Simulated scan of single mutants.
Amino acid sequence: MSLLTVSDIGVRYSRLTAVRNVSFSLYEGEVLFITGPNGAGKSSLLRAIAGVTPPAGGRIDFAGCDITGLVPETIARLGLSMVPEGRDVFASLTIEENLMVGIGMHSGENGWRARAMAELEAVYATFPILKERRHSQAGLLSGGQQQMLVIGRALMTHPRLIAIDEPSLGLAPNITDQVYERLIALQQERRVTLLIVEKNSTRAMLVGGRMMLMRGGEIVLDGDARALGESEAIEAAYFGYGKQA
Rank of each mutant, 00 (worst) to 15 (best):
M1Q: 12
L4C: 06
S7H: 12
I9M: 05
G10F: 01
V11E: 05
R12T: 14
Y13R: 09
L16E: 09
R20E: 14
N21Q: 15
V22I: 07
V22D: 07
Y27G: 08
G29H: 09
L32A: 06
F33R: 09
I34P: 05
I34S: 08
T35W: 02
G36R: 07
L46K: 06
R47E: 12
G51I: 05
R59C: 08
G64I: 09
G64L: 05
C65D: 14
L70S: 07
V71T: 07
E73K: 13
A76S: 15
A76I: 00
R77F: 00
L78A: 11
G79F: 00
P84V: 04
E85V: 09
G86R: 02
R87Y: 10
V89Y: 10
F90V: 10
E97C: 02
N98G: 11
N98L: 03
H106Q: 11
G108R: 13
E109Y: 09
N110I: 11
W112T: 07
W112I: 05
W112S: 12
R115N: 12
E119F: 00
E119A: 15
E119R: 15
L120N: 06
L120V: 02
E121D: 15
V123W: 05
V123I: 08
A125S: 15
T126M: 11
I129P: 01
I129C: 01
S136H: 15
Q137N: 13
G139M: 04
L140W: 08
L141S: 03
L141A: 08
S142P: 04
G144K: 10
Q145P: 06
Q146A: 13
L149K: 00
L149E: 04
G152R: 11
A154S: 11
P159D: 05
P159A: 04
R160F: 00
R160H: 13
I164L: 03
E166A: 05
G170I: 01
L171A: 09
N174S: 14
N174E: 11
I175W: 07
I175Q: 07
I184V: 15
Q188G: 12
V192Y: 00
V192K: 01
E198S: 09
N200I: 00
A204L: 02
A204E: 10
A204W: 10
M211P: 06
M211Q: 14
M211D: 03
R215S: 08
G216P: 01
G217S: 08
G217L: 04
I219C: 09
D222W: 01
G223Q: 04
D224W: 04
R226T: 14
E230C: 05
E232R: 14
I234E: 01
A236W: 01
A236L: 00
Y238W: 03
G242L: 04
Q244H: 04
Q244R: 15
